[in-house]
Design a protein around this nucleic acid. Structure first.
Lengths: 337, 337
DNA sequence: ACTTTTTGTGGAATCGATTCCATATTAAGC
DNA sequence: GCTTAATATGGAATCGATTCCACAAAAAGT
């Protein structure tokens, strides 16, 4: 009878019995440890082959305290950014035999801590957090955590981080707009509790404008949330309240930028002739809107890979370090400016 | 001293010792089973509260054979479709206390079976497969599997499926184009080993054309893969080889459609005046390309929720049924036709 | 030829829970 | 007042592995 690779519910005890050895010896063969005679080894391997036996991760983990599972906490799973991040992590983790246990907070801050607890109970070997905010409770939780941990996207003191260079990226983009001859530049940001996207990018914009000695009208600086509709509304407010209309708008995410473009199209502003527009994120969409959107590519997959690699280093080498890795970015200048 | 919710590595034995009871009694309190005096209960709860004890899932699973983990096998994690699917599942699963263990095949067919094995070893309580193809080996594997299982997107005999109504959706779209007065209609499909996207949608297109007694030139029917570039190339081939150019093109995915639009824009065909175009998938991008793309919304999140719900039913009620749930769709008519 | 090492094997404890079974106490039934 | 049932508790087995320790047998050293 041919065994089609079905995994039967066999235990190490049965294998031991069938091979006429103790389960200790079977375990040695399984883990390639200690002394085992060639004789016993082949006999055991043969039985394993025949039965299709696979050791229970369950029992193994209970004893060894290792699960080969990494918990990944995300603010959402619906966006491209999350997808790319996870894809990058998975690429590295899968190679090392780890699997990803998902934890989706749906942007609810309190769930970040809840999930850290839950993942700890599940004995994951490590945790990667794609963070959207920094708060003391979370920082406290992380620093007292005795599981290898890496945060992506926000800087936590005393924690290993993979960071995007939000500040310089946003300054570069602002400078690009200035270099293109714009002096009235609008800005669409998000709440500053998101230090990376909200605070740093805004600060970079204002710093660069200040350095260029360009004044920024209050109404030109608007705040939105992470969706397209919000970009539309932000630019609507901007245009309604401005004394003088801006000739360029820098939005801190592509979605906000695309929302802004919608508004501009609707009211027949020409892009980039009347108003230039720029975003951040290099979403797939950004390439196919009309005109193609100038944006910044943050290389999210690379970030995922980097985070996974750092985590694995911490796990395997018991690396206690708290590295800060700042990833590079690419400014993609397209027809919208 | 205030305990900040840190989970300490306490075991049920220590709790038992501290509360002066046996671990059996502690277990009873934990699981709300059997008889426990109010006296003992409060004493135990107090100790649990003080220590922040949380039982080890590890040990629990070993004994109970339940992990509260669902394995989700995906062809990719980078696309919106996957993201939405997973978001939908997570919504339902999280509510029932399940977490998702990701398995990303990267479109490698053989990995589907590998992952089913791996997930089985990990003792997941159920598996959801977002399938891209149907083959005998896989079907065999699934049917001999004794873990609750749900497949999304492809029909497997004797298995619970959540299906999209690919055939009728594609017929509807074809009919829409015909109704708009087109008689020369091009088609961009994918390989028919993907029965849903490749085979059914093509069959629907051809059936509808046949019913309308419209002939289809060979060159009008092209095949691509799942990316934008491929749509561009497909329409390029179509236009090069056609005796007479089509006046409309139906692509089986939005990406293919967007690629086609790129080509049309580049060669200054006006959409929809010169050539109408339609896709499938209702990607976010489809709404913001110019002109907005006519497409079909498959309600992926709903599919994810549905699959998760079916799986939970199977798990909790030991439901042996093999339901087929066919989801509805919405045809989104926008400016591209 | 006798001690020391290396090699090979199995018994038993352990990981941290659940659960069956036995037993003690108390309440209810008649 | 005596039997039966409900309540309460703990001992011990179990889940399926790993690993420490003891102990033979074979090989090496002197």
């Amino acid at each position: 009878m041919v065994d089609l690779g079905g995994i039967n519910v066999t235990t190490i005890n049965e294998i031991a019995a069938m091979a006429n050895v103790s389960r200790t010896t079977v375990s040695r063969v399984l883990n390639n440890s200690g002394y085992v005679s060639e004789d016993a080894r082949t006999k055991i391997l043969k039985v394993i082959e025949e039965t299709g036996y696979v050791p229970s991760q369950q029992a193994k983990s209970l004893r060894t305290k290792k699960t080969k599972v990494i918990g990944v906490i995300l603010p959402t799973i619906k966006t491209e950014t999350s997808g790319r991040l996870v894809a990058g992590m998975d690429e590295v983790l899968a190679q090392e035999g780890y699997q990803i246990l998902l934890a989706n907070t749906n942007h609810e801050k309190h769930k970040e801590i809840e999930f850290i607890n839950l993942l700890k109970v599940r004995q994951v070997d490590g945790i990667i957090l794609a963070a959207t905010n920094v708060n003391d409770e979370l920082l406290e939780k992380i620093s007292q955590l005795n599981i290898p941990f890496v945060a992506i996207g926000q800087e936590f003191d005393g924690v290993t981080n993979v960071l995007f260079d939000d500040y310089n990226a946003a300054r570069d983009m602002t400078r690009l707009l200035i270099d293109k001859g714009h002096s009235r530049i609008g800005f669409i940001g998000v709440d500053e509790s998101d230090r990376a996207v909200g605070y740093l990018r805004k600060k970079a914009f204002l710093d660069e404008m200040k350095q260029a000695k360009i004044t920024v009208e209050d109404a030109w600086v608007q705040k939105g949330v992470f969706n397209i509709e919000s970009g539309y509304e932000a630019v609507a407010r901007m245009f309604k309240d401005s004394l003088e209309l801006p000739t360029a708008v820098f939005a801190v995410t592509d979605r906000l930028a695309v929302g802004a473009m919608r508004y501009l199209n609707q009211y027949h502003f020409k892009i980039p002739e009347d108003i230039a527009i720029a975003g951040v994120g290099a979403s797939e969409m950004s390439k196919y809107v009309t005109p193609p959107l100038t944006t910044i590519d943050y290389l999210n997959e690379a970030a995922g890979r980097e985070a996974a690699q750092l985590l694995i280093n911490k796990i395997t080498e018991n690396h206690k370090g708290k590295e800060k890795v700042v990833l590079s970015y690419r400014l993609l200048e397209r027809d919208s400016v």
